[in-house]
Amino acid sequence: MRFRLGSIALFALLLVSACRPFEPATPPGFVELEDRYGRSEYRATTADGVVIGIRAFDNDPKGERAFWVRALENRTRDMGGYALLEKREVKDRAGLTGTQLRFGHDEGDEPYLYYLTVFVTDDRVFILEAGGARAQMQRLAEQIDWSVKNFLHR
């Protein structure tokens, strides 16, 4: 009976983890905000308010990474009033190449940074986000980079 319950619990755990089309990597110093988002979203935060997140969408209409990067860049600048500071290529844990857009935005006297990282497969578009006050984002730069490098698409 104990083996059967253990097997059922293991199967349920595998089923839950299989619901997301990705495997997030919560870095040290961040806490996952569980049960607040749907199966294709993830959020984690620090005590100081830096937030990281992941969203997954169907790649429909089918577009290459360059298309999705440009669409997100335009939307973030035009709708959000963010200035593009830097664009760089990154890789996830499986070696998939993505593009990271780094934006800046001032709210009152305080500068903020917002990073969008885009990975694209034939089936899905994955958007990894990180944002917060510039001083906090700079202090947590290694953890944020680690979460991108250890992200795994499925």
Rank of each mutant, 00 (worst) to 15 (best):
E142W: 07
D92R: 03
E107R: 12
S7D: 10
G81P: 00
V31T: 15
Q136W: 07
V120H: 02
D48N: 06
G63F: 11
N59R: 00
G95S: 09
R36K: 10
L13S: 12
T76D: 04
F3W: 08
F119S: 04
R102G: 01
L101Q: 02
V16L: 12
G29I: 00
A71C: 05
A133W: 05
M137F: 01
S40F: 14
L85Q: 12
L140N: 09
F22V: 07
L15A: 15
W146N: 07
E34P: 04
P27N: 03
N59W: 01
G98L: 01
Y115R: 07
D48L: 04
M1G: 07
D60F: 15
T46F: 07
R70W: 05
V50A: 02
E64A: 14
V16F: 11
E107W: 09
R36C: 08
E142H: 10
N74E: 13
A141G: 06
N74Q: 12
Y42V: 01
R134C: 05
T76Y: 04
V120K: 02
F67D: 09
E41W: 11
T121A: 01
F22M: 09
D106W: 13
Y82A: 00
R65K: 15
I144Y: 04
G29E: 01
A141K: 15
P24T: 10
A135S: 09
H153L: 12
R36H: 09
Y37N: 10
D92K: 02
R124Q: 13
F67H: 10
L113Q: 07
G108I: 01
F67Q: 11
A66F: 11
V31H: 08
R88C: 05
K91H: 11
A66V: 13
A25C: 02
A135C: 03
F11T: 14
V120Q: 03
G104T: 01
K87L: 00
V50I: 04
E86D: 14
G95Q: 10
A12F: 12
L152N: 05
D122C: 00
I52P: 04
A56I: 05
D35A: 14
D145H: 02
P21W: 13
Y112F: 04
L14D: 06
M79V: 03
Y115N: 07
T99E: 08
R39Q: 11
R20Y: 14
E64G: 15
